[in-house]
Design a protein around this nucleic acid. Structure first.
Length: 337
DNA sequence: AGTGCGCGCCGTCAGATGTG
DNA sequence: CACATCTGACGGCGCGCACT
């Protein structure tokens, strides 16, 4: 990432990393430009001093140019407005802006610095950061929440994007919903016909719209599978082996993660059943974490793309500012002559 | 063809963070 | 505060590529 970034941009990125994990903000960039002339391509003792007047968000940036004669000139900058940071949350921007602008107000400054430290100590949430920014900057794509098709699906249960009526499990089995509402489970290890199991769905007329989740535990007692069946209602759990059982219910109950026990909780007394329950919970937790990790990686990629976009924007701004500075220098030197 | 290397993706764990 | 969620870190795996 960031390969080919210009020198100043890289410095800015590095300084961002100094502050916290993935924090940067245009306001602070402006302050740095003012306080660190060496970074703004203005040599020490230059005849022209440039101070970036803090321009509020959305207002044109004004640059104060001190001429050798002592005259001060307000120059309109090429950057019309500070760009919202890709990775800086609005909350953070507010705190930062307050901490910079109101340093004289000691009591508020103390509170701000405490809040600032508190925020800086947190790890960034890619989803939160980008969503907050996207609400402020329409150009920044919002990280997509769960698609509407997935609404009603308990978190962590992958939707099977398969043709209508045919679904594929995470263990390679195929689920077929027949027109009569029956669920057929086939194992591809066989030729697709042998080993076919059929489950009946009898409550397809459940009143609440939503989706069906089929949870299926087969020969291995440690194997529990869930299937999301769009467009229908109810949750199905199938368990074969010692105690074959199938249950269908609507997914709107308060049971978390859409899990339905095949056996009633009151029957889980034997050590074996307790062990099975513990294993089932572990499998469920691993499955949810697996999905969470996938989602996190997707968000991280999006986050990095936004950072790279911001690098490009800052490089362009940097280039324009340098050009503007050269122009102002020429004006000043011509006036001095 | 066999091998080593780099890269990306994935699953899992542990700890931080968010939420009701 | 308990529980859920998120994310960094780690290791494994597969793939492509260059080299022998």
């Amino acid at each position: 990432m960031l390969a080919g970034a210009g020198q100043m941009t890289m410095e800015m990125v590095e300084s961002q990393q100094d502050d916290s994990a993935g924090d940067c903000m245009p306001e602070r960039d402006a302050v740095r430009l003012q306080n660190q002339p060496g970074r703004s391509h203005i040599s020490q003792g230059s005849e022209v001093s440039v101070a970036a007047a803090s321009a509020g968000r959305g207002s044109p940036a004004l640059t104060l140019v001190q001429l050798p004669s002592g005259q001060t000139v307000h120059a309109q900058g090429v950057i019309q407005a500070t760009q919202p940071s890709v990775i800086q949350s609005q909350h953070m921007q507010a705190v930062q802006a307050a901490s910079i602008a109101d340093e004289s107000a000691e009591s508020e400054g103390i509170v701000d610095s405490q809040r600032r430290r508190e925020i800086l100590s947190r790890r960034p949430s890619y989803r939160k950061i980008l969503n907050e920014l996207s609400s402020d900057a329409p150009a920044i794509p919002k990280i997509e929440e769960e698609k509407s098709d997935d609404e009603g699906v308990p978190s962590g249960i992958p939707a099977m994007a398969m043709p209508a009526g045919l679904y594929h499990s995470n263990t390679g089995q195929y689920i077929t919903i027949t027109q009569g509402g029956a669920i057929q489970i086939s194992n591809p290890a066989s030729d697709g016909v042998h080993g076919l199991q059929t489950l009946g769905m009898t409550n397809s007329g459940a009143p609440q719209p939503g989706a069906t989740i089929v949870q299926y535990a087969e020969q291995s007692p440690h194997s529990t599978q869930q299937y999301f069946v769009p467009g229908s209602q109810g949750v199905v759990q199938a368990a074969t082996g010692d105690m074959p059982a199938y249950q269908i219910r609507t997914p709107t109950t308060t049971l978390p993660q859409g899990v339905v026990m095949a056996a009633s909780p009151g029957t889980l007394h034997s050590p074996q059943q307790l062990a099975e329950e513990a294993t089932r919970k572990r499998e469920l937790r691993l499955m949810k974490n697996r999905e969470a990790a996938k989602e996190c990686r997707r968000r991280k990629k999006e986050y990095i793309k936004c950072l790279e976009s911001r690098v490009a924007v800052l490089e362009a701004q940097n280039k324009k500012l340098i050009e503007e500075l050269e122009t102002l220098k020429d004006i000043c030197s011509s006036k001095a002559d």
